[in-house]
Amino acid sequence: MTGARAFLQRTLIAAEMQGRQLLRRRLALAILVALPVALYLAMLSQSKESAIEFGALGMSWSVACAALFAVLAAREAEPRLVLIGFRPAELMLGRFLLLLGGGTAFAALVGVAMTLASAPVSVAALFGSCLLVPPIAVSLGLAVAAILPHDLEGTLVIIGLVGIQLALSGGAWVNGILPMNGPIQLAYLAGGFPADPVGLMLVHSLVYVVALLAIAAAGWSLRVRVRRGRPAAPVQ
């Protein structure tokens, strides 16, 4: 088997097994779905436009926490997998792809629901806001898990980062340096509020995704590294 084919096979099976585990956590999945919906509906009674921002940030919490716990559930098994031949990058990439796919499907559904309920000024901006959430939130969850591989600590950091953005008003400069600024600004645009230029939001989001993934990859590789790396050739 060629190196590229083996890489693909291992990445795909890592993604598949991640998906199987996630689907079996039915209660957790239900709560992950309910959280952004509840936030959105709670705000909808006050402001249809502002509710979009709450829905997007609720999704950020859900997706980032799903990524965090996906990593933590595998922290005992993954050093073994690396010991026998998996590369940390294959495990990380498989997980990222699975969570990104699931998160994007979820975001699209939430986008449809919010479009119907909020009647946004810009439907494109609303979907942009929703679809920008999964890559950033998955990367954030993976990075936090790599740095703080503990349930409580990791969850609190995610609650803190997203919660600060939820509490801030749109123009606050602090928003500009936090990871979810792109989706928030697009949510403002969708609601007819003033917002930063779209290009700037996309660059901001892209920089965050790349930086967070780099932290996640480096941190997790260090945590699951084995001295030997690949298995030595069998004894003749």
Partner: peptide
Amino acid sequence: GRIGYCPQEPGLLELLNADEHLALFGAA
């Protein structure tokens, strides 16, 4: 040579069954 390591605390994935573990570990 190739190492087979059996830790004291089973390094298993809680929500996978035996066949799924075998498929995942075998892919390595």
